[in-house]
């Protein structure tokens, strides 16, 4: 599929659709891929394989001002990334008119750490044939079921439909396990306040404030983040002690509430393995419960329930009662 993609991209650039492509290129290791803006002569660097997990939508923001009148950038968008794309269009951070979207097929992306967790080391390469995964290592080949080593975010896959595209290339496959994505949220809700506090203190105290979650998050796309702005009065607060440090994540979850598409990038990139997506999912499940099911990024121009008033909205007292019972 990678070869087919590169051929098509060359053709599109030849036709003058765009000059540059937003896609992935190889990182330090074969299982590392990183977002890349590639010009026509760099297209041979483009990678599209089972490791292209990163959500690219956010990288379009910085490209917008670079595009001249009528000029377009070609972007490779997976089905789940298309939600973030639409959400950013809704927020006027991306202009769809300036992007030629290739909806690339996705059958789920692989988490190399899950392969390692099976005791497989010295990995040198991987061959995929359907669900059969042959892992080449320094010590010989190992067989793994692909479905068992997918990224966590693929386990709550949003489906194979691209919510936005100009053309589609490649087949997609729904990889969700069918489990309720709110299972863990429900477990946390069932805990006592003390247990829940202990859970989050345990998780969040691992944070090293590398800001990877913030930097990867398509909803965290402020021109200037409040945590980088000395005038907000909160910047220093979240660094005063380790407890206040924890508030960084809570504030972040509030800032993306209603806009988070549940793309799962925050947890994917966390070097400390903190399940940050659970904070966002708690908000999503509350919004679903109080205002009806809502998926951010489904359409462009949606007004999310947190910034919308309708006469059918639940009364503030209901929100309050729930809050005080929790």
């Amino acid at each position: 599929m990678q070869r087919e993609l590169i051929e098509r991209l060359n053709a599109l650039i030849g036709e003058g659709v765009g000059k540059r492509v937003l896609g992935w290129k190889r990182g330090e290791f074969f299982y590392d891929t990183e977002p890349a803006i590639l010009a026509a002569d760099q297209l041979d660097e483009l990678v599209y394989d089972s490791f292209c997990g990163p959500n690219l939508s956010k990288y379009l923001i910085q490209e917008m001002p670079k595009l001249g009148e009528g000029e377009k950038i070609i972007a490779l968008i997976k089905p789940c990334d298309s939600y973030s794309f639409n959400q950013l269009c809704t927020e006027h951070r991306i202009n769809k008119d300036k992007v030629y979207v290739i909806g690339v097929g996705c059958k789920g992306k692989i988490d190399v750490d899950k392969i390692r967790a099976r005791g497989i080391t010295g990995i040198t390469g991987i061959d995929v044939d359907g669900d059969a995964l042959t892992v080449h290592t320094l010590y010989g080949d190992e067989q793994v079921n692909r479905k068992e080593v997918l990224l966590n975010k693929c386990l709550s896959c949003k489906g194979k439909e691209h919510r936005v595209f100009d053309e589609q290339i490649g087949e997609s496959e729904e990889t969700s396990t069918g489990d309720d994505r709110f299972d863990m949220v429900k477990k946390l809700e069932a805990m006592s306040a003390e247990e829940r506090f202990a859970f989050w203190r345990g998780e969040l105290s691992k944070c090293i404030r590398c800001n990877a979650c913030r930097n990867v998050c398509p909803a965290c796309s402020c021109v200037k983040c409040v945590f980088d702005n000395p005038n907000t009065g909160v910047q220093n607060k979240a660094a005063a002690d380790d407890f206040e440090e924890n508030l960084f994540h809570i504030i972040r979850a509030f800032h993306v509430a209603g806009r988070c598409t549940d793309c799962g990038e925050c947890s994917r990139v966390c070097p400390q393995g903190i399940p940050l997506h659970l904070l966002n999912r708690k908000f999503i499940s509350d919004i679903d419960e109080l205002y009806g099911e809502y998926q951010a990024g489904e359409e462009v121009g949606q007004r999310h329930p947190v910034i919308n008033y309708t006469q059918g909205d639940c009364e503030p007292s209901i929100v309050h009662e729930r809050g005080s019972n929790a």
Partner: peptide, 13 residues
């Protein structure tokens, strides 16, 4: 204006 993202959320709310 320097900090504004242009995201329109305030306009909607």
């Amino acid at each position: 204006e320097l900090l504004c993202n242009g995201c329109s959320q305030c306009e909607r709310v």
